[in-house]
Amino acid sequence: MYQITCSIVTYNTKLDELQKAIESFLNTDLNVQLYISDNSPTDDLKEFIKKFDDERVNYIFNNKNGGYGWGHNQIIKKVIEKSNYHLILNPDIYFKRGVLEELFSYMEKNENTGNIMPMVRYPNGEIQYLCKRIPSPKDLFLRKFCPIKSIIEKNNLKYEMRETEYNQIMNVPILSGCFMFIRTRVFEKVGLFDERYFMYMEDFDLSRRIHEKYKTIFYPNVEIIHAHAKESFKNRKMAKIHLKAAIKYFNKWGWLFDRKRSAIS
């Protein structure tokens, strides 16, 4: 039984970023296994992965791009009975030795916690406000389409829980999918990623399903760096994908009437 398994989904990923993510995860004495789930059109990445020459690194070529959640599900299905915890990790994240150990220790001591996320910062040290209340259509569409920055910032104060100052351990309804440290048995209770989402919102969907049955903890005592590019804010194609995902999300959970959103708002 592995203490931690990890999946990184790639699609024509920048190799320098991926290398930092891989090295960060492997820099531990815990019993770990890493799986690269490659959604790219070719398996060129295989040669790069071989350079690590580490039996803890496994390369899986999926031979199609089924989406972000689908790519992770290919790995979760393989490890669900082989590990105590599974880390969903973006390829543009890196962190220092000790982060995994502290998160592992917290989860071992808090069996009612299903998912935990550390403090996430940009490379320049600024906080990424990735703790969120359950979104309403207004929360998402203001961020995408409102031209008035002050209105967006006012809405984000509540939506992104900024009033907490991100300086305390919190049970948060929605945690980002860039780094999800999940108790593996949770998947048996709540299911895997919903593969109807190609990209975006699949983490919101999974996070709130976990939150219904377990605590989903923001843990600011350790931190990671996320070289986040917000592609859907810059790229028209990605913006369309994000919009379609948001529509699927609200069709599933409710537009004006989302009972669980109202209950914890």
Rank of each mutant, 00 (worst) to 15 (best):
L100S: 02
N27E: 11
H226K: 01
S105M: 06
R56W: 08
M201Q: 10
E160R: 15
F141P: 03
P173W: 07
K230R: 12
L192I: 04
L243F: 10
Y159G: 07
F187V: 11
H226V: 04
L256V: 15
I225P: 01
I241M: 13
Y129R: 06
Y122P: 00
R185G: 01
L45S: 07
N156W: 04
K132I: 00
I241A: 12
T184G: 02
I76V: 13
R162F: 11
K138N: 06
S24Q: 08
K234L: 14
R196C: 09
N63R: 11
I151Q: 00
C6Q: 08
I225E: 05
P41M: 07
G98Q: 07
N63H: 07
Y122S: 08
K215A: 06
K51N: 10
N155K: 11
Q168K: 15
F179T: 00
N167D: 15
Y94Q: 03
G177C: 05
D53N: 13
K109T: 12
D194M: 06
D38V: 09
F198C: 00
I169S: 06
F198L: 09
Y85S: 01
E160K: 15
M1Q: 08
R133K: 14
M201H: 13
L34D: 04
L87M: 05
I210G: 03
I169H: 07
E55R: 03
E231F: 04
V190I: 12
W253N: 12
K78F: 10
L256S: 13
D258R: 06
L192D: 00
E212W: 05
L130W: 12
N235F: 09
I22P: 00
P147R: 10
K149S: 15
E165Y: 15
T42D: 14
N221F: 15
E212P: 00
T184V: 04
F233R: 12
R208K: 14
R196M: 08
Q168R: 14
F141V: 05
I93R: 02
G67V: 05
N155W: 00
I88A: 02
N90S: 14
Y249A: 07
R162M: 15
I217N: 04
K260Y: 10
I75E: 01
I93V: 15
C146I: 14
T5V: 13
Y68H: 08
S40A: 14
Q33P: 00
A227L: 08
F204L: 04
I8G: 03
I247A: 09
E126C: 01
F204S: 00
E23S: 13
I241K: 10
V222E: 09
L192A: 02
L243H: 08
N39W: 02
I151A: 05
E47R: 07
L243E: 10
D43K: 12
F257R: 13
L100Y: 03
S262M: 08
K144R: 14
E231D: 11
N124F: 10
M117T: 14
A245H: 09
R236H: 10
R236I: 13
Y106A: 06
